[in-house]
Nucleic acid binder design. Structure first.
Lengths: 157, 157
DNA sequence: GAGAAAGATTACCAATCTGGTAACCATTGA
DNA sequence: TCAATGGTTACCAGATTGGTAATCTTTCTC
């Protein structure tokens, strides 16, 4: 069906969640899992990766938790996607043009390249400050308007 | 790695190949397979699908073969892609927004929707008359310039 | 220091998808 | 009738995916 993996979807939710925190605030993976409907055991692997890639900072131990490693305005959706899907590429011949002997004279190859960089540009243009702002706007409209309880962001236990 | 399947790639090659034919001309699947480096047994399934979807017309029996069902200018790359990948959608929540309870207030969902339609537009804008013209231009420059034997199109047996 | 609360890492699993092969059927022209 | 074609189906091995679970490591609190 040609879609992103669940992990990538979950990862975006996590980063979005963290984008909504006050600076200095921290939240546990379990809390995110619960509020963002991510399987509790699964989120560990995802967070681990986000941390390895340098998108989130983690603090171990009791009273530990997660926070963004950078400002939301400096994180693009593309970064999150590529952290889990690898370098964006609609077809093998985009990454490794030499692999297909036809690629030199293949106009479709050039199309894949174009579509790929198009998509990449789009995703790179989406930054998490904008996303969290949009979410805050939605939440401000209140539960009634969306038919949906707005997700509570603060981890204020 | 988030890329199109091989079938889709092959399908595009096939349609491109057929786009380069003179009107009324026909070519066999085996010939395409050989010239476009598609596994001989595999191409049958792909052709079968292309025919089922109404993109190519087939003639069975001895002296049979394939041709486009429509003019190349009326076939977009998107059609070929969706014939093999299903409706384009970067995430499940694009096709089935109701499935994820968060989607109502989820700004990422709207981003997936936007990126999807962006990609769809791009692919819909690529038509096979343009691709075959580009390929003809390349071929006209001769073998020396590409370091690659130009693919022979005419099935002149 | 003990213990609980976190994240980190690893092994494992079932289910699905994928690319591909092969055999056989159906149709058609010579 | 026979060979050449496309059509269909069954099958297969390997990779991927989404997910669970167990165990390790770090850190805070008492």
């Amino acid at each position: 069906m040609f879609s992103l993996g669940r992990q990538t979807d979950y990862a975006a939710r996590i980063v979005l969640h963290l984008s909504c925190l006050e600076p200095g605030e921290r939240v546990t993976a379990a809390q995110i899992a619960q509020m963002r409907l991510i399987p509790g055991a699964f989120i560990k692997r995802i967070v681990s990766r986000l941390s390895a890639v340098g998108l989130v900072e983690t603090v171990r131990g009791s009273r530990g938790g997660l926070a963004l490693a950078r400002k939301p305005s400096e994180i693009s959706l593309l970064e999150v996607v590529e952290a889990f899907e690898g370098p964006l590429s609609l077809n093998v011949c985009v990454e490794k043009p030499g692999e297909c002997p036809l690629s030199v004279t293949c106009p479709v190859q050039r199309t894949w390249v174009g579509a790929t960089s198009n998509l990449r540009d789009y995703l790179q243009g989406v930054r998490f400050d904008a996303l969290s702002a949009a979410m805050a706007r939605d939440a401000a409209r209140g539960p009634a308007h969306g038919g949906q309880k707005p997700v509570k962001i603060k981890g204020g236990s």
